[in-house]
Nucleic acid binder design. Structure first.
Lengths: 111, 111
DNA sequence: ACTGAGGTACGATGCAAGACGTACCTGAAG
DNA sequence: CTTCAGGTACGTCTTGCATCGTACCTCAGT
């Protein structure tokens, strides 16, 4: 019930290269643009993004985003929560989330 | 002598996905961090970056950067000039160059 | 205890992209 | 004109990565 937070890198350990490679994929970027546009920063289920890919591939993508330090993954055992690490990302890479948020306005077309 | 400017996308046609994929590679990113850090925006020769790769591969990488709209390539026939499209990039993706410039401080280690 | 939905682990596959060899072009210098 | 350095075009090889199939785990509900 409590949900264990899966480990990601510390704020100081965030690397631009890893982040940019994570954002290079259209599916991952569409997730990030949605998260960046939602200022409430509420925890979301991972199938609330309705990505047109299998669940194994979704697991893969969310792992990449977590290991890049962009999101937190909260493991509830049989389900998983996603939350944007807004303050961490903003402090390490100021302006990055604004770019993603701006992209969210342009329509939902990925890639 | 005049040098023809190789074509790149217009300012309005710049796409975040293409740009981020271009910046995902360590070699291309090291070029961009150098360019972003140089506020004079002077034209540079392409072997002034001393990339540890063959010249064919360098041609490939500079093409990617040009097609992403990040740089201009000026063709002099037997040599080539590189110039950052600072105003275009800054107007379309404000803050992006600042992120790259900040990365340039952290040392020259790519990837 | 059984079932079903959500998620992960592992392996295999297919494709895009980075890298380079060879050959060729261009212009400057001799 | 010849030479040579810088750059490109094309083909090839190889690596990385997105994707999925199969199998298994976890919890909630019945």
């Amino acid at each position: 019930m409590a949900g264990t937070n899966l480990v990601g890198p510390e704020v100081d350990a965030l690397e631009l290269g890893v982040v940019l490679r994570a954002l290079a994929d259209g599916h991952r970027r569409s997730v990030m643009t949605e998260l960046a546009a939602d200022r409430t920063d509420s925890e979301r289920g991972c199938n609330s993004f309705d990505l047109p890919i299998s669940k194994q591939t979704q697991t893969h993508h969310f792992r990449i985003l977590r290991e890049a330090g962009l999101i937190d993954e909260i493991d509830y055992g049989n389900r998983k929560g996603i939350r944007l690490r807004r303050t961490d990302v903003e402090s390490r890479f100021p302006g990055l989330l604004a770019l993603l948020e701006a992209e969210h306005q342009d329509g939902t077309a990925p890639r």
